[in-house]
Design a protein around this nucleic acid. Structure first.
Lengths: 282, 282
DNA sequence: TGCGGTGATACCGGTGGGGTATGACAGCGA
DNA sequence: TCGCTGTCATACCCCACCGGTATCACCGCA
């Protein structure tokens, strides 16, 4: 049993996505017959039917669905491997840290300062990215470590080190009656007239249905709150980007949020290990 | 930038392991010159030097070390993908569950019974394996789900559902003075004359240094305790395999052990999801 | 019953992966 | 200093296989 070639997997994924040989071949930049042959060869090698070619189009079999998921993961890893290898060659003792734009300023500053004080510390490139992009960058190989938050971010497949746990606060327009309160309960935020709570993306990037606006980045959120269009629940440290038009009120019964430093599981990079050690001592 | 082929990666891993082109070629069943060429091509494609061919042998560069780790992971995933695909085709609505031999009898029974009561339940094949083999089987694609224990087992890369948390107990020979106690502290187990505490394998399969015997499976442990050669700390539910020659004494200050159901992250199998749902309701 | 469109088959040419033979070079013992 | 040995790289050849073109078999549909 010889091993699957990434070329074959790429072909298969494209066909599985298009469910159409000719279109898939076009996307791949090859002709349709070689593509048909490659898929047949893959099926023969596995001894498994991956696609049902019915006269009414192509559909995935159960096994094909399984292989589709696996193949996507493998292709991603292969690309990540190439990228990580190139980066390792280009820059020794240099790390890329990904973090959500706008959050954790203090924490980041503290970590960078503490790390710079270590002897032999790696240079750190900080990449600010959109919400939830950190996971992709880590998997991609475009970043070596990232700040992420539990329970919001998808941490499966990463090793993590807890750095900071904090309560959440409600941020409301300063002019709103709620701004006068000194503390709130989660229940107080439900069904406030004219002030729907903003909707954060879920781990898969989609949004729950609801009346509030969908949040893509924090400056957008700050703007919307200042305009009096919404309110939001954020973790306490993010207060740093609020201005006079906002009011932050502690939420006494909110679940705590833990900011973690995350890196690809099984990373053996000494530089990553050193940074994690520093973070653990904060 | 075209993508890395698994054939090239396999070649590279073999060379990196042997650090010797001729031996690697022999292991691969090809001649040495094509192997040299393949590695050169890989280096050219990545634009990165992976190996230093010094006159005193071959050594890995930093980038080579990175690629070695990545490539191993990719090759493992490729093999796992093939296996999972074949299994998906061979057996629809059938799951393989891996668990440590000898532990969790009650829990397993309860889960299987509850699952069998569900409508449309998948058949479950239970595979008993050695300690720590569950992770390998999940990664391999030889198992779909596994019982594992936190904090003992390496859970990185898996999704998990907590099933049961329990305290640990000390198991000592029934004839030993400690057997008369009704409870113990961890400190009580240190430096007991003639009764060194047994050593469990760590997550990587190695053993800490120490006087006690290295444990490979539970029946061996039971035997050794019955003979009065050692004592051990185990989680409470494992008492089921003790006999008259053993005494189990609660450890009031031991850290709790959580048995979890684990499965490969990103699994989309409906059968796994159904089993996990059942487990969550135990 | 032709027409458009599907994937499969037949056949062909060129790339490239594999083989053998040999080269270049360092270490080493006589 | 000179072979000798063992290393990896180079040169060259062959054929397997990937990809291309032409075509078939088959369906749905005017």
């Amino acid at each position: 049993m010889d091993t699957l070639e990434t070329r074959e997997l790429k072909y298969f994924v494209t066909v599985a996505e298009e469910l159409h040989f000719s279109r898939a071949a076009e996307r791949l930049g090859i002709a349709q017959p070689p593509l048909s042959r490659a898929i047949q060869q893959l099926e023969r090698r596995l001894g498994v039917r991956l696609l049902d070619r019915d006269r009414r189009g192509v559909t995935l079999t159960g096994a094909g669905q399984v292989l589709l998921d696996e193949a996507r993961a493998i292709l991603d890893s292969a690309e990540a491997a190439a990228r990580r290898t190139r980066r390792a060659a280009a820059s020794t003792n240099r790390l890329t840290l990904a973090t959500k734009a706008g959050a954790n300023h203090e924490l980041l500053r503290k970590l960078l300062d503490a790390h710079a004080a270590e002897p032999d510390a790696a240079e750190i490139d900080v990449v600010l990215c959109g919400m939830g992009d950190q996971a992709r960058m880590l998997r991609d190989g475009r970043a070596d470590v990232a700040f992420m938050q539990r329970p919001f971010d998808a941490l499966a497949g990463f090793d993590t080190e807890d750095v900071l746990t904090e309560q959440q606060v409600a941020v409301v327009p300063a002019a709103h009656p709620l701004a006068a309160r000194t503390s709130l309960l989660m229940a107080d935020l439900e069904d406030v007239p004219d002030l729907p709570v903003a909707r954060w993306p879920r781990q898969d990037g989609t949004y729950e249905a609801g009346p509030g606006p969908e949040i893509h980045d924090l400056s957008q959120l700050a703007q919307l709150i200042a305009l009096g269009h919404t309110m939001a629940v954020i973790c306490a440290s993010a207060r740093s980007w609020l201005w006079g038009a906002h009011a932050a009120i502690p939420l006494t019964d909110s679940s705590p949020v833990t900011t973690v430093l995350a890196w690809p599981a099984h990373s053996r990079s000494r530089a990553v290990a050193a940074l994690v050690r520093t973070a653990a001592q904060l």
